[in-house]
Design a protein around this nucleic acid. Structure first.
Length: 275
DNA sequence: CCGTAACCCTGCGTGC
DNA sequence: TGCACGCAGGGTTACG
């Protein structure tokens, strides 16, 4: 599940390879993944476009093109964006191939077909669903301890679903949200407005810590995630709580529990994270 | 405002 | 071995 650290890793692997190259043509095998424009327009518009830079916002990856165009990807759960030579055999579930003038290709594959692609002018970025409504970047100066404190105080929802709400904070997904809560010793069902000053401060720090460690370890490969070179990350070896149901908490040896909150699984330690 | 659930989709683990 | 079934999940939408 590509979350902020995974998308950031993909960005870092792709940027030096793609920058300066131009797209020559596109082959579309599953048109439904492209939200804007239609398949024919996509092919027509992307041909000849030069890649200026790559950027990330939350879990969205943007390839900034010449002529004020932006090619935007959201990988959802199983999407992959891989740079390789045109001779490489096609992986299963390859839905989109974008050819480059170097003889290499950028390929989009996605087992579950939930990933999405947009090609829009920068003036129309607000037509990319979810992008304009994103909350602050966890590493941006706008995301301060005071901001988190103020926002949590006025929210009467449980902390776990709130951390997953991309309009609240951009980039956290199920894995890093559980890791941040465990490290801050906060129960996932605790109401946001009931967090005390110490918990809020701790959470502010642990959100940044778990994300930074995820980036440092080149992402968490739980099942499907690979970077732009097709390489797995290593952060899965360092997870303290996610997917550890029935196993002893590394801190206190209490058995890790899995519960459902808002339809999503949540892993926590009932001793370290009291409700 | 908040919670819940359905939906999109395929692969995988489980139970029979 | 094979089949049916439930589950996994990010984001969107609908509804209470």
């Amino acid at each position: 599940m590509p979350e902020l650290p995974e998308v950031e890793t993909i960005k870092r692997t792709l940027e030096p390879k793609l920058t300066g190259q131009s797209f020559t043509e596109a082959e579309i095998y599953l048109p439904t993944i492209i939200r804007i424009p239609n398949a024919e327009e996509f092919k027509k518009q992307i041909a000849g476009q030069k890649i200026k830079s790559i950027s990330r916002r939350g879990k969205y990856l943007t390839i900034n093109l010449s002529q004020n165009l932006a090619l935007i990807f959201h990988l959802r759960m199983t999407g992959r964006l891989i740079y390789c030579h045109a001779d490489e055999p096609l992986l299963k579930h390859t839905h989109l191939i974008m050819k480059l003038d170097s003889g290499n290709e950028l390929r989009f594959t996605d087992v579950r077909q939930f990933g999405r692609v947009w090609l829009v002018s920068v003036q129309k970025l607000d037509t990319v669903s979810g992008l304009k409504d994103l909350g602050p970047e966890p590493f941006d100066t706008a995301f301060t301890r005071e901001f988190l404190k103020k926002e949590l105080r006025r929210r009467r929802t449980r902390i776990k679903p709130l951390l997953l709400d991309q309009t609240f904070i951009a980039g956290l997904g199920n894995i890093y949200a559980d890791e941040a809560l465990h490290r801050a010793r906060i129960h996932p069902k605790k109401l946001a407005c009931n967090l005390d000053a110490r918990e809020t401060s701790k959470l502010y720090i642990t959100i940044r810590e778990v994300l930074q460690e995820g980036i440092d370890n080149r992402g968490t490969t739980f099942r499907d995630y690979v970077d732009g070179d097709g390489q797995c990350g290593s952060n899965q070896d360092l997870l303290q709580i996610y997917n550890r149901e029935g196993k002893p908490c590394f801190r206190c040896k209490t058995t890790v529990v899995k519960i459902k909150i808002g339809g999503r699984s949540s892993y926590f330690c009932p001793y370290c994270q009291k409700e």
